[in-house]
Write a protein that binds this DNA or RNA. Structure first.
Length: 901
DNA sequence: CGTTGAACTTAGCACGTCCCGA
DNA sequence: TCGGGACGTGCTAAGTTCAACG
């Protein structure tokens, strides 16, 4: 490693020298005017001061149980191979690398992070237990726990100041029991087993329809709730949601600024009155025309409608190879297909003879695909007016379902359509991908609605599974899906009051974390050396979550895609490269790859080494003593409601806030928007938000490069023209100046010339055609072909000229009044255009797999964007689309330009 | 105390529309 | 003015969290 001296360097510097992908770095700096900004890291990381814990060294593990594996000081468990992995991977991961080596604790001015100021933390590695917590009265702890239990979501601001101490008390207790065994890895945690067939049993609720609330109201529930919201809805009388009620709205209703309403936001009751019209079912399956049949072994077969529906689903997908060619997808599809075939008697040929469908390979869905595709085309080809009409009709039908009345206010429903049947498209290597997701019947759907409200009628001949009046739930309808037994909910849209409120709360919680983050960091810095293995793992995990924005990482079952987060990281996902680099490489949520090489605190490095020590091997968990609930329970000691995910929100928003704070965005609006987007991009990279690279990306890049080369070639030509005028400047400027750039080969030049000529021809042709069209339209005679030929002379002349240039290596001066000065000016202009184009192309390359949207929608406090918009006078529309403006209405209306995260 | 259920947020992709430069 | 890429939106899968359960 080249970085031996980093430690004493200013952190900012150290970082860039560490960063793995240089090219990326360079590129990024260019589009990042505030170059230092990329060092922003929400937290400190290092700064834990000298790690004076030799006694804690690897071979001196946390507890007395110690020496499980004898000494192995300098060598990694399992030997070598760490670097190979990283080196070879580099190319695959051009981007990403920005999230460096955590070391970046710049920001001396940063009051959120006093850690570094506090100097070495003397942890007295052993005997922490005895150290200090005796001064915490036990009573306090109990009290605190009780409080936490009582008010789950409530405001309960203070209460927790001493949380960390109480944490210690617990730890002490914990230590006693776990002492001796502590550092032996637990036996592999048993994989959570799900029901073999995958469907969690749907809960049976024996309630009759008009039973009282199924959930008992907690004793402490607000009593004022009931009287409060009545009036609004009462005036129209109880019962069905009247169409007018739902449609009026827009102009009428005065807005409700819930964020200014002090009565809002506590307690668990979400509504008092709730009226809605239920859900929209997908259209019944429409059988294929008689002449469209799947082929089995070349023979067209007629299927029962149930089976046909599944075949139809598969056939319609034939164009998306990544589903249809996936063996798991095929296998699962065919298993479900066959099951239905067995039930419905397989297929019949044209003579009515039974055709047993046994092999996927013999099925040919092409005819179905052709049909589906034709229908798609036809739909696309519809006239704009027709399309509009169809949409209007659909809208009208659905209008009653689009809104509900929530405590008397009209609110938009998010997803009132029941999911249609189809083939399950699990992400990544989902073991169930391709299975048939069945049609949902009303009998599977539970409705949640106000007691007084009229219950929407189920489709004729059907009934709802259940109707309940759960005021603690925000959902209107719910069912369970048959593939994984997952619950699906109909809830309100993002712009609704209730969603806005919880969004607001989420960001307020993240802001509250600011008040505790110092203590938390201090604690985990210390606990990294804890003698209690569980505690040490926990501290290490919190460190990772805080520094690298990892997700919590729940356990997953065998019937799910194999993805991980922090707590579920496995041996093979973490590679250690001494002295202090950690390489993460794993699939996270949605099977998106998380790859990062980072420098970590030395103690963290040691810990990970310990956690990976043999007998652990591939497949074993790094944090075998840690679960997400344990972790979250610990975190909640610091602050009510603090969980792992809050760190992501906090760090994302904090990062954005710092970047925007530093930004002295000047210039045009597009430039300011770009600055904003660059900050947004850093957050997206922090959160590892990716998108798949567009199929056309490589081609686009090629085009851009071509364009740039064209300009460079043009520069070369101009330089030759300079020589043509004044040969003496060759000496003055040096021969290099006039040389053709090396990477522009002779072949390339030829090709380029040809394409220039070609373009010229096309241009002439087009102009000619257009003029002719115009002439004809005016009733005049078109120009003759001869005219075209004459005009084409320009292009042929160009061709000749190029050829000559090629031969002689000289370029005749062009333009009127040519002069060296003029040419120099031209070259300079081209220089600029080249620079711009290069930046653009680099931007695009760097951005190809980064998705900005997710962080903007979910992680960056929208008030930051509003502040930026106000401060730099950029219309908010430039950052938030219409729907986002509605979603973030509360933010847009509640802050001025001096608000701070 | 671990497991499961339930409810909620977060996530990328497909697809339609908009918009901008050749 | 057209084509293609950016953008907006709907969809639904895949997470997290916390309470209830045994």
């Amino acid at each position: 490693m080249s970085s031996s001296s980093d430690d004493d360097q200013p952190l900012v510097k150290a970082k860039s020298s560490e960063t793995i992908s240089k090219s990326t770095d360079a590129a990024m700096d260019k589009d990042m005017p505030t170059t230092d900004s990329d060092t922003v890291k929400p937290g400190v990381s290092i700064a834990f001061g000298p790690v004076d814990d030799d006694n804690m060294d690897v071979d001196q593990p946390a507890t007395n149980g110690a020496a499980v594996n004898g000494k192995r000081k300098a060598s990694l468990p399992n030997g070598k191979s760490y670097k190979d992995a990283s080196d070879s991977e580099d190319d695959d991961v051009p981007l990403q690398k920005r999230r460096k080596t955590s070391a970046a604790a710049e920001s001396d001015d940063d009051d959120d992070v006093p850690l570094k100021k506090s100097g070495p933390i003397r942890a007295t590695a052993h005997q922490i237990g005895e150290e200090s917590d005796d001064d915490v009265p036990l009573g306090e702890k109990l009290q605190k726990e009780k409080a936490a239990m009582e008010k789950k979501a409530g405001k309960q601001a203070a209460a927790t100041r001493r949380a960390s101490k109480s944490g210690e008390a617990k730890r002490k207790a914990a230590k006693k029991e776990s002492d001796s065994e502590d550092d032996k890895p637990l036996a592999k945690k048993p994989a959570p087993k799900k029901q073999a067939n995958g469907t969690k049993k749907v809960k049976k609720e024996e309630s009759d329809d008009d039973a009282p609330l199924t959930k008992k109201a907690p004793a402490a529930k607000k009593t004022k709730a009931a009287p409060k919201a009545e009036p609004a809805s009462a005036k129209k009388g109880k019962g069905k949601v009247k169409e007018e009620d739902l449609e009026e709205g827009e102009e009428g209703e005065e807005e409700y600024r819930w964020w200014e309403d002090p009565t809002k936001g506590d307690g668990t009751t979400k509504w008092t009155t709730l009226e809605h019209n239920g859900v929209v079912f997908p259209p019944e399956y429409e059988p294929l025309p008689k002449n469209v049949k799947m082929l089995y072994d070349g023979v067209p077969v007629t299927l029962d409608i149930k089976a046909e529906e599944i075949a139809h689903a598969f056939g319609g997908m034939l164009n998306s190879t990544h589903n249809v060619e996936n063996p798991t997808f095929q296998k699962n599809f065919f298993a479900d297909f066959k099951e239905v075939l067995d039930k419905t008697g397989h297929g019949k040929d044209k003579d009515g003879n039974k055709v047993k469908i046994l092999k996927f390979e013999k099925c040919d869905f092409q005819p179905i695909f052709n049909h589906v595709d034709a229908e798609r085309q036809a739909k696309k080809a519809l006239s704009a007016a027709d399309k509009k009409k169809i949409k209007a009709e659909k809208d009208e039908k659905e209008a009653p379902f689009m809104f509900c009345m929530w405590d008397g206010r009209k609110q938009k429903v998010g997803n009132f359509r029941v999911e249609p049947p189809g083939l399950f498209r699990g992400r990544g290597e989902h073991p169930k991908t391709g299975r048939f997701k069945k049609r949902v019947t009303p009998e599977q759907i539970t409705i949640n609605i106000g007691k007084e409200a009229m219950v929407p009628a189920p489709p004729a001949g059907h009934k709802w599974k259940e109707v309940k009046h759960d005021q603690e739930g925000t959902w209107l309808a719910m069912w369970q899906e048959n593939i994984n037994g997952n619950y699906k909910y109909v809830m309100l849209a993002a712009n609704s009051d209730i969603k806005g409120q919880s969004d607001y709360k989420k960001f307020e919680k993240a802001r509250e974390l600011k008040l505790h983050i110092d203590a938390i960091r201090k604690d985990y810095a210390r606990e990294l050396k804890s003698e209690v293995m569980a505690e040490r793992q926990r501290a290490t995990a919190v460190y990772l979550i805080d520094q690298f924005a990892l997700r919590a990482g729940n356990e997953k079952g065998e019937d799910e895609a194999d993805t991980v987060g922090c707590c579920s990281l496995k041996f093979e996902h973490v590679t250690l490269r001494p002295p202090e680099t950690v390489i993460f490489d794993f699939l996270g949520k949605d099977s998106i790859r998380f790859y990062d090489e980072v420098k970590v605190d030395p103690q963290v490095f040691k810990n990970l080494k310990i956690f990976k020590r043999s007998p652990k091997k591939e497949g074993d968990e790094v944090f075998d003593r840690l679960t997400t609930s344990g972790l979250n329970k610990h975190l909640s000691n610091y602050m009510p409601g603090l969980t792992a995910k809050v760190f992501r929100t906090y760090n994302a928003s904090w990062t954005m806030a710092e970047l925007l704070k530093k930004m002295k965005s000047t210039g045009t609006i597009p430039e300011k928007v770009k600055d904003y987007n660059n900050a947004n991009r850093e957050v997206a990279i922090l959160c590892n938000h990716k998108r798949t690279v567009a199929a056309s990306h490589a081609q686009t890049m090629e085009k851009m490069e071509d364009k740039i080369n064209g300009m460079r070639y043009q520069q070369w030509r101009i330089k030759q023209m300079m020589l043509d005028i004044d040969n003496k400047i060759k000496k003055k400027k040096g021969a290099d100046y006039f040389a053709l750039p090396e990477d522009l080969s002779g072949d390339w030049v030829k090709e380029h010339q040809a394409s220039l000529v070609e373009q010229e021809k096309i241009k002439i042709q087009k102009k000619f055609d257009k003029e002719n069209e115009k002439l004809e339209a005016e009733g005049q005679k078109p120009m003759k072909a001869k005219e075209l030929q004459d005009r084409m002379a320009v292009a042929t002349d160009l061709e000749t000229k190029f050829k000559k240039e090629l031969k002689t290596g000289k370029v005749e001066a062009e333009g009127k009044g040519p002069s060296v000065d003029k040419y120099e000016a031209q070259i300079e202009k081209l220089d600029q255009r080249i620079a711009t184009a290069k930046t653009q192309s680099e931007d695009r390359e760097n951005n190809k797999e980064v998705a900005l949207g997710t962080s903007k929608i979910n992680y960056i406090d929208p008030r930051l964007t509003v502040v930026f918009s106000k401060k730099f006078d950029v219309p908010i529309e430039r950052f938030f689309s219409k729907t986002l403006r509605e979603k973030f209405d509360w933010a847009i209306k509640s802050v001025g330009e001096d608000w701070e995260f």
